[in-house]
């Protein structure tokens, strides 16, 4: 891993705000887990508890008009870009007030008004989309950048390689941020990949600069993202960032993740991104009580979100026939 960026890159109050965002995400994911067990969330969920620092750190380095594309494990990215826990949980609970009107579900959280242009459930599909948004920004001269967040498993699918190649050839302002949580679903990524760093080690083949970073340290993620954003905005093209992190839950709702060695789980749990941020706050002289108050506020926000989502109405059945076409309807014939 590269050297940890200087803590004073981020001021105390800003870091406290990032910590609170991470705390909100952590509690939202816990709430999603509990609501699923209570039978109030159907289908599946891919929880991002443990990945909070990647989403929050990267988001801190972006402009409000930049574009973010995420995977089906994307709750943290939606919230980091401004989606509320209430609209996310309402979506999971199939409520009319859901962020996608209950038409998307857990795997497709999207907040287009905040530049969060979707969560995609076909592995790797959104890397070319992010490159396309970056191409659009370049064509319009807008100075925007696009970010694709993806898992380690996506580095073995064709769309990853097509996207990196064309992004490099066209010098597109796009960041490819891999959340390497060491497992592609249930299988260790090392057992299906011939290089130790599945994203970063492939980048040189496309002449794209890459770095491997501590994805559990929000300050490190923010600093690495800021460097890549600076490169992108100044016309130097794409960057690959491989952020090493770890899932606190299994791959999806039905997975207890028993395939992970206990010592490995223990080691990563001791490197909880919230603990690391709290330690950094202490180093910056932030009183412990401030972090506790941030935790309390996060708990309050999520508790209110759960209550509001539970109370929200179900969608109107007629809404199944809206939003297919831009005219709002679904008519396909006369």
């Amino acid at each position: 891993m590269t050297a940890v960026a200087a803590t004073d890159d981020i001021g105390a109050s800003e870091l406290l705000a990032l910590y609170e965002q991470m705390a909100v995400i952590r509690r939202t994911e816990k709430a999603a887990h509990d609501l699923f067990l209570a039978g109030l969330v159907k289908g599946t969920t891919h929880l991002a508890a443990g990945h909070e620092a990647v989403a929050v750190g990267a988001s801190a380095a972006l402009r409000p008009d930049d574009y973010v594309f995420a995977t089906y494990r994307g709750h943290h990215h939606a919230i980091a870009r401004g989606a509320t826990p209430e609209e996310c949980l309402a979506e999971l609970m199939s409520k009319a007030t859901g962020i996608c009107k209950a038409k998307g579900g857990s795997m497709h959280l999207t907040k287009a008004s905040a530049g969060m242009l979707g969560s995609y459930a076909i592995v790797g599909a959104h890397l070319p989309l992010a490159a396309g948004a970056a191409w659009s920004a370049k064509l319009r001269g807008s100075g925007q950048v696009a970010v694709a967040f993806f898992g380690d498993g996506a580095t073995n699918i064709g769309a990853f390689h097509e996207a990196l190649n064309i992004a490099a050839v066209w010098s597109l302002p796009v960041l490819f941020i891999c959340e390497n949580n060491l497992y592609m679903e249930y299988t260790p990524i090392g057992s299906v990949t011939p290089v130790p760093n599945p994203a970063a080690d492939r980048a040189p083949a496309y002449a794209i600069p890459a770095e491997v970073i501590d994805g559990n340290d929000v300050v490190v993620v923010a600093a690495a993202t800021a460097r890549a954003v600076q490169r992108a905005r100044s016309g130097q093209g794409p960057t690959v960032i491989e952020a090493r992190t770890y899932r606190h839950f299994g791959h999806s709702r039905t997975d207890p993740a028993t395939y992970r060695p206990a010592e490995e789980v223990q080691e990563w749990m001791e490197r909880d991104p919230l603990d690391i941020a709290r330690a950094r706050l202490a180093t910056l002289g932030v009183p412990v009580e401030d972090a506790v108050r941030a935790d309390d506020r996060a708990a309050q926000v999520v508790a209110e979100a759960v209550a509001a989502a539970r109370a929200a109405p179900a969608p109107d059945p007629a809404d199944a026939f809206t939003d297919v076409w831009a005219d709002g309807g679904s008519q396909w014939r006369t």
Binding site: G98, I99, C100, G105, T110, A112, S113, L117, V324
Partner: peptide
């Protein structure tokens, strides 16, 4: 478009 509730 559909799965984002008409956002995109």
């Amino acid at each position: 478009r559909y799965m984002t509730g008409g956002q995109i």
